[in-house]
């Protein structure tokens, strides 16, 4: 059947806004960012081409190096612990506990909070003179020390704690859906086979839940790349520059330090890194799709 001219027109006009958004906002803005990183723009954008000089500056910048270092630590720990804790919570809830709905809501609740609120709450909790350390000492544990947030070498781990606390509930929800998808008869077969429960999870259930783990990992990873507000609200990058992250570097140079060139170079570097990580995965997926 051939589409009439009018229905083809309406189809095109319906797709047009999305197409425009895609062209202007994504491709246009990204291209502009890449171009700006090749100029010496300061407070206002200009078109003075300077080659890769901004990137040289960037790689010699201590604050940027620390940011990259931090995001790697944060990324690895945050994704692993959120997956681990989320999965364990899901397994715990899957044991047909009482008041399952309530518990599930409580675990999922942190996810409904913004990173700013999460950051503030954990800033107070971790503050040695107000939070956990203070409480422990007032209970009589005179030597209790929990001052990670004020020590430069451990401040980034505080971001991990807050991030994991916030995201575990979401991972739990995804994992629980995966666990509920496991055929009841597999559990029965495993019982008849005499397999201990932990063995069933390790050898049978977890291998079956590849899709759930992949979904959760992808969602968590996007959270890693755009990590910004947690750092701002919890430590504001401190002490010193100890808990700086790349997105914060970009924002600060773009708006506070009036260095558009350097900021866009940092943003472009982030983009290239993400592509370098994601591209092999997409390629592998496409190959796998072809083989089927």
């Amino acid at each position: 059947m051939r589409l009439s001219l009018t229905s083809r027109f309406s189809a095109i006009s319906a797709l047009l806004p999305a197409l425009l958004v895609m062209l202007v906002v994504y491709i246009g803005a990204t291209s502009w960012t890449v171009w700006m990183s090749l100029t010496n723009s300061r407070m206002l954008p200009n078109n003075n081409f300077v080659g890769l000089r901004q990137y040289e500056t960037l790689l010699g910048n201590d604050r940027w190096i620390t940011s990259v270092h931090n995001i790697v630590i944060y990324g690895v720990l945050f994704v692993s612990f959120a997956l681990l804790i989320g999965f364990l919570l899901a397994v715990a809830i899957d044991q047909r506990v009482r008041a399952e709905d309530t518990i599930r809501s409580i675990f999922l609740y942190p996810y409904s909070m913004s990173f700013v609120v999460t950051g503030l709450v954990w800033q107070w909790l971790l503050n040695p003179t107000l939070g956990i350390q203070h409480v422990l000492r007032s209970w009589g544990f005179e030597n209790a020390t929990f001052d990670w947030i004020v020590r430069p070498e451990t401040a980034i781990y505080c971001l991990v704690i807050a991030g994991v606390w916030q995201a575990s509930g979401l991972v739990m929800a995804i994992m629980l859906a995966g666990l509920r998808g496991v055929d009841e008869e597999i559990w029965k077969a495993a019982r008849v086979d005499g397999l201990p429960k932990w063995r069933v999870y390790m050898s049978i259930i977890i291998p079956m839940m590849g899709a759930s783990f992949a979904t959760a990992a992808v969602l968590l990873s996007t959270g890693v790349v755009r990590l910004y507000d947690l750092s701002v609200s919890m430590t504001n990058g401190g002490p010193g520059i100890a808990s700086e992250v790349p997105a914060k570097f970009v924002m600060d140079h773009l708006f506070e330090r009036a260095n558009i060139g350097l900021a866009t170079a940092a943003a472009t570097t982030m983009l290239i890194t993400v592509i370098a990580v994601v591209a092999p995965y997409l390629y592998w997926r496409a190959r796998k799709g072809e083989m089927r």
Binding site: D183, E185, I186, K188, A189, A190, R191, V192, D193, G194, S203, I204, P207, M208
Partner: peptide, 21 residues
């Protein structure tokens, strides 16, 4: 007694095979 200690074996409607093995 636990199923494994009863000297029984069972075959299920949905096969219940361990899918990744």
């Amino acid at each position: 007694a636990e199923p494994k200690d009863r000297g029984i074996a069972m075959v299920f409607q949905s096969y219940a095979l361990y899918p990744r093995m």
